[in-house]
Nucleic acid binder design. Structure first.
Lengths: 151, 151
DNA sequence: TATTGTTATACTCTATAACTATA
DNA sequence: TATAGTTATAGAGTATAACAATA
């Protein structure tokens, strides 16, 4: 959707890992935020639902660890999702301190839509790269993250 | 400095451009922030000084554009740097609305140190990759950024 | 009229600590 | 004692609008 001819980034910036990663992360974050806006989902709310759907019912603490945010933030996220009927909390029977978050059928349907929108945004974001280029980039990012942030 | 064996990122997350870029960007941002802390420089302050040193005296608006922040934020950044004697504002003679930001000799010395620290942090961050892997990754990021954020 | 820089305001985000209930 | 979740508070960061000076 960008019809202007792309201009060159000064090489000193292009050489900076911090600048390049932060700027590109900001671009995709904006695109995903926009993609989720019609569904009235914030990126972090989408994150909650994705984590549940992928990893099965998880505790709020587990989600906080995975997204590297504080557990005090998760309370409000789940509140909002529960109010909309997308998620519910169920006390763990094996450790009754723990709230296991579950996707409701309504939440599953909303998530299906959201995943579709996010995938579309991601495809648009990655369009300038060949599949091979992105795959190589992705693998490097995985290496970096696994080395520096073991879960 | 990470002696634990790195654990696997679930493939659904590893497949997500948004998740991977945001998480890796967060890691490098934290490392750079730490590296600059002894010099009492915030990453954005470092950014101001780098931009001036690379692009020559620039207006506050130009910096805001390059780092994708609002110009109202720049005022405070420059205030702090000016107070420490690292930067000064000079009214442009050709357009007297514009403040051109200059590095002072003291600022130049501080920046030299800061660049050294940031480069060290970056090298540590990139250590898990071969030079070729990072170069390929970097080029992909440049493509993405030039396509989506023409300056 | 539009743009640069400044200021003030309000809002959002996040970090911290304290509390409860469990383990 | 330690952990999961909640709540309240304060602080940082940011967005917005309005203004003066200049184009």
């Amino acid at each position: 959707m960008n019809s202007q001819p792309p201009s060159k980034i000064p090489e000193e910036f292009a050489a900076s890992a911090g600048y390049m990663l932060n700027q590109t992360a900001q671009v995709i974050a904006e695109m995903v935020t926009e993609a989720l806006k019609p569904l009235k989902l914030a990126p972090q709310e989408y994150g909650v639902m994705r984590v549940i759907s992928i990893s099965g019912p998880v505790s709020q603490q587990t989600f906080a660890d995975r997204y590297n945010i504080d557990r005090t933030m998760v309370t409000g996220l789940v509140d909002g999702l529960e109010k909309r009927g997308y998620v519910d909390r169920q006390r763990s029977t094996t450790d009754r301190r723990v709230n296991l978050m579950h996707l409701t059928p309504l939440g599953k349907r909303a998530l299906t839509q959201a995943v579709r929108s996010v995938k579309k945004a991601q495809a648009e974001f990655l369009a300038p790269l060949t599949d091979e280029e992105w795959e190589a980039t992705r693998l490097s990012l995985v290496k970096l993250l696994e080395a520096h942030r073991p879960i």
